[in-house]
Write a protein that binds this DNA or RNA. Sequence first.
DNA 1: GAGCGGACGTTCCATTGTGACAAGTTAGGG
DNA 2: CCCTAACTTGTCACAATGGAACGTCCGCTC
Lengths: 183, 183
Amino acid sequence: MERPLNPTAASLLGFLHHGPMTGWDLVAAAQTVIGNYWTLTQSQVYRELAAMADGGLVVAGERGRRDRKPYSLTDQGRDAFSEWVRREPGPETIRFPLLLTIVFGRHLEPERLAEIVAGHRATHRERLARYEEMRSTALGGTDEPDVYGMATLDFGLHYERAVLDWFEQLPAVIRGSVQEDSV
Amino acid sequence: MERPLNPTAASLLGFLHHGPMTGWDLVAAAQTVIGNYWTLTQSQVYRELAAMADGGLVVAGERGRRDRKPYSLTDQGRDAFSEWVRREPGPETIRFPLLLTIVFGRHLEPERLAEIVAGHRATHRERLARYEEMRSTALGGTDEPDVYGMATLDFGLHYERAVLDWFEQLPAVIRGSVQEDSV
DNA sequence: GAGCGGACGTTCCATTGTGACAAGTTAGGG
DNA sequence: CCCTAACTTGTCACAATGGAACGTCCGCTC
């Protein structure tokens, strides 16, 4: 009764195509590779791995050095992944608490709102810088960069630029009229 | 021991500032007003309402026509909201399954990938159109439009435009080289 | 005035997230 | 060489969330 894979489980299988990995490794890999548009927690990873081992999609190897428990793909897992990746991916969801604060902005003092907004704006500036750096180091490497990974990274860039643009065109009431721009 | 409000509960309190509403009304209002950047399900709304009634943040009025159970704000609820709205809002999270499909794009046929991408692109085009329409109707109304609501709507516009831009600059391997463009 | 469909609320179950904890491992100061 | 502090890796228990079915009530239509 193979239930269809959920995206998180599928991602783990995807990573395992590179070879056996432990839950710990997978958490780290996922965080850096898909962390910008997918979240998964440690407990979820171990849970999914256990469930998939149950279902025969992966097998646990021998315990290694620090009690490491490496999992590897089975043929069945490869098939399940292959099926999943061809499926229609679901719609995206965004959860943006700052926008809640803004939409209810009439209920707080403009100064406080502006302060909050400025803080987030700074955060996004940093994020954009980080993505840009990632992009150039990825392009600077010796071997030709992965087109697919690059495409998803580009999404992050477009997203952050859009957010920044949006911040900049916010009306004075929200943004605070003070010009602490530059840089 | 007043636990700090979660954003969902806080939003409900925010809406209740307009007057008594039922869970059903709140679901609808939330869907249209904050639906673009916050999700809340029916069960969650009723759950939060019950919990907040427990905590004295809202009170349920008499059952109305179709078993309607209108909730209204208490002073305590107003205070709790007021405190919440001044707090630092948490970071945003995005969950975008399409990007998972793309990052593992090497594992499926380019045609299939292009097909999937094209579908999502169309969806986003529609969404952008819808937002643009919302914006102009909001601006066209008699009374001056709400600055705060407009700002959050603008976020949606910026976001959708960014996504569309991103789609357009995707490399041919992913996007499919076929030119089925033009609106 | 019977019955259909939408409004409204409630409940249950699966999934996800949070956080603490335990045991093994390494590194470096004494 | 020994000991402790810091880290790795896995596990567990619990809280929060989401999805979906269900039951009832009521306004409408025929």
